[in-house]
Amino acid sequence: MSQATGIKEIIKPENLVYKKTKVMTGKVLSYCPGCGHGTTHRILAEVIDEEGLQSETIGVSPVGCSVLLYEFLDIDWQEAAHGRAPALATAIKRLLPEKFVFTYQGDGDLAAIGTAETIHACNRGENIMIIFINNGIYGMTGGQMAPTTLPGMKSSTSPYGRDVKMMGNPLKMTDIVATLPGTYYVTRQSVHTPANVKKAKKAIRKAVQYQKLNRGTCFIEIVSNCPSGWKMTPVESNKWMEANMFPYYPLGDLKVPAEENPQKQTNPEKND
C-alpha cells in the first residue's frame, strides 16, 4: 500500500508520529469525501484513547448522517431516536455517574427535533458532553434546509435561498445554551485545518476532564462542511465555510469555567 520511494529508512516503528487510534474500529466511514464528521470522530476517538476511557465511555449516537457512528468507534453505544440523545444520556449518567457519557448530534437532530431535549438537559446541568455538528443542512436525507441554514443559503427545501421572513433566522443553539446556568463549558470549533483540528481536540479533552468535576454540561459545536449538500468540492466547501459560516457562527469559547478565566465566567453559582 505504501508508495515507498527510497524512504524505507524513515518508515520504521520508532519514527512513527501519527497513526490512526485503535479506538476507531477500522470500518470504512460512510461519509462523503471531505466531510468533517470523519475528522471529528477521529479526534473524539483519540481523546478517549489518550485519556484511557475506552472502558468507561458510553456514547449516544443520533439520527442523521452520523446515525452509523456506533460502527466507527470501538466503545459501548446507544442509538437514540431523532433528537432524543440528551434524554438517553441524562438517564445513563444519572444511573452510571462514574462513566464518561456523551452525545454526538447534527443540526437537525440537536437544533430542530431535539431542541427541547437539548435545552433541558443543558438547563438541568446534566454532567455530559454534547458534540454538535453544525453544517447548516440535512445531509443524510439529501440536503434539505436545517434550522442552522444561513439566510439566503440554498437547499433542496429552500431552492431560492432561505427566506428569513418565511423561515426565520438560523438558530444559534450554542449561544442559547451558553446562557443557561447548567452549562459549564461551551465552545465553537471547526476541523477543516490542522490548527483547527488541534483546537477542537483540545476542547474535547477539556470537556472530558470537566466531566470528572461533575459541574454541568459541556457543549462543543463543530462548525462543519457538507460538500455534497452544498454542491462544492471539499476544498471549496471549507473556503465557503470560512467566508460564510464563520461570520455567523464565530469560532471560540462562549463560556469557560471560572478557574480558567475569572473574567469570562458567567455562571458563578455553578462553581462553588
Binding site: 458510553i58 449516544v60 446507544q78 437514540a80 431516536a81 432524543r84 434524554a87 438517553l88 444520556a89 441524562t90 438517564a91 445513563i92 444519572r94 444511573l95 452510571l96 427541547a116 431535549e117 433541558h120
Partner: peptide
C-alpha cells in the same frame, strides 16, 4: 433509586430507553 421529572413524556420515555440500555 433515581427519580426525575422530565421536560416531556417524549424525554421521559427516552430516559427510560437510556436507563434500560444500561441494564437497569
Amino acid at each position: 433509586m433515581v427519580v426525575l421529572q422530565a421536560e416531556s413524556e417524549v424525554a421521559a420515555i427516552n430516559m427510560v430507553y437510556g436507563g434500560a440500555a444500561c441494564g437497569k
